Simulated scan of single mutants.
Amino acid sequence: MSLRPEFNVGQRIRLLRERQGLSLRALAERCGLSTTAISQIERGDNSPTVSSLHQLAIALGVSITDLFQDERHAAMLIRPAERLRAEAGGVLMENLGLGLPYQQLEPFLVTLAPGAGNADQPVSHAGEEFVHCLEGAFDYCVADRLFSLEPGDSLLFEAVRPHYFHNPTDKPARFLLIFQAGGSGTLARRLHAETAHEAG
């Protein structure tokens, strides 16, 4: 069983919205995005930023992982060519595993372009967060403490502490990012973000 690589996150957002009987305007009021922006995302005309995905997930009452879930398949094995992806602002996130009914882990492979990150928008959420640098180098700031990660370095912290990542180098960086649910049993809903300075 696998996921179709052409699966559109926008289709999933529209399905969840319609299931809840929400109009575009009602969802826009909940998440702070414009109706035009949401419509473009749903049609696949515009790729959502990770920040937008976070806003939509909260407004729909689901986790980020739920936005990547294609209900027509129960995925347990995901091959590289079949990963669901979201890309915006120099941040590419690839879902590495989903499909369990009560999934408590949200694993992602993140590719961070030179200069990309969310230094101007620190986030926090329930649970724990694990980061492992695979390639390149980047910074992770947790509660005002800056950690510079290089290949092989790992970082584990309580995600309720404000945190952000940033690639200050001129080369791409890749890292494993895993969210774990907090004591409330709710999956971590904040993935991180829109780059501090998007091109254009």
Rank of each mutant, 00 (worst) to 15 (best):
N167I: 07
A173K: 03
G152F: 11
T169D: 01
P168G: 06
F165R: 04
F179Q: 09
P151I: 04
Y164F: 13
I178M: 05
L177V: 08
L155V: 06
T169R: 03
N167H: 06
L149M: 10
F165D: 00
G183A: 08
R174A: 15
E158K: 14
F175T: 00
L146V: 14
K171Q: 10
G152K: 13
H166T: 05
E150W: 10
A173S: 04
E150P: 08
G152R: 12
G152H: 12
G182A: 13
L155M: 11
L177E: 07
G182I: 11
H163N: 09
F179W: 08
A159P: 03
A173C: 02
G185I: 05
F157C: 10
L155S: 05
Q180W: 13
A181H: 03
S184M: 02
L156P: 03
F175C: 00
N167T: 08
F147A: 09
L176I: 11
L177W: 11
L156A: 14
L146M: 12
I178N: 00
K171V: 05
Y164M: 00
L177C: 07
G185P: 09
L176S: 11
S148C: 02
P151V: 03
S148R: 09
S154C: 11
T169V: 02
F165M: 09
G183R: 06
L176W: 07
D153E: 01
D170K: 14
F179E: 07
Q180Y: 13
H163I: 06
V160E: 15
V160F: 15
P172G: 01
P151W: 06
S184K: 01
G152S: 12
D170G: 10
R161D: 15
R161F: 15
S154Y: 07
G183L: 09
E158R: 14
K171S: 07
I178R: 00
A181R: 01
D170M: 14
H163C: 08
A159V: 10
P162H: 03
H163V: 05
P172M: 01
V160D: 15
S184Y: 02
G185C: 08
G183I: 05
V160L: 15
T169H: 04
L156T: 13
S184N: 04
A173N: 02
V160S: 15
P168S: 07
P162M: 06
G185V: 08
F147N: 09
D153S: 02
S148H: 09
F147R: 03
A159T: 13
L156G: 10
L176Y: 10
F179C: 07
F157Q: 09
L156I: 14
H166Y: 10
P162D: 09
N167Y: 06
E158N: 15
L146W: 07
